[in-house]
Amino acid sequence: MNKTSFSRFFYRLWRSITEAYSDDLYQDPWKFEYVVLDTETTGFDYYTDRILCIGALKLREDRINVNDCLEIYLEQQHYNRDSTEVHGILKNEGKDCLGEKEAMIKLINYIGDAIIVAHHTRFDMTMINKALKRQGLPTLKNRTLDTSKMYRKTLIASPLLKKKPSYSLDELADKFNLSKKDRHTALGDAYITALAFIRIVKILRKKYLNLTVMDLM
C-alpha cells in the first residue's frame, strides 16, 4: 500500500465514523448544492476598490436553471477608469442598480447554505466579505471551491509537464472548448466557471473511484 492509498484508507475509516453528520464533505459532489459566482470590480485593491456587478447561478448536479440566476449591479461612488475598460461596465450604465447593503442582503439570501464555487475564489470572497463588513453584516462562512486550482487535478503527472500553480479562466475555456463571448461580464464568467466545474467533476469521477467533495478541495 503506498502513501496515498494508505491515507485514503484512513479517510474511509474516519468517514464511516462521521457518516452521521449531515455536513460531511466525504460525500458525492452531486449531493450538494453549489452557487457559482463571479464579481466584476473597479480594481484589485481590497480596501479602495468596490464591486461593480455580481453574477451568480445555482448548480444542482449538472443542471443550471436559467431563471434562477442572479445578476446584481451596484451603485458606485468610487470609480476607477482603468478597470471599466476590462469589464465594459460604465458607472450606472442604465441598469437598475442597488445600494451595497441591499445588494449584499440579496446575495447572501441567494447563496444560503450552498458551497460557493468561483475562479480565483479568494479574490471574490474577500471583495464580498469586505463589502459585508462595511455594511455591518456577518461575513460568509460557506465552504468554497476554486476551479483555477481544481483544474490542476485533472492533469496527469509527467516529467515534462510543469503544472502551473493556477490556471486562468481563459485557459479553462480553451481547454473545454467553451465560448468566450461573454467573458468579463459577471454572469457570463460565472456561466463559464460553472461549465468548467461540471466538466472537472466529471473528469475526476473517472479518475477516483468514489469521488467526494474533499477530493475537489
Binding site: 453574477g55 436559467v66 440566476c69 463571448k181 461573454d182 454572469l187 457570463g188 456561466y191
Partner: peptide
C-alpha cells in the same frame, strides 16, 4: 428575469 445567459439561449 432576463439575463445574459437567457439572451445567449435565445
Amino acid at each position: 428575469m432576463k439575463n445574459i445567459i437567457s439572451e445567449r439561449v435565445a
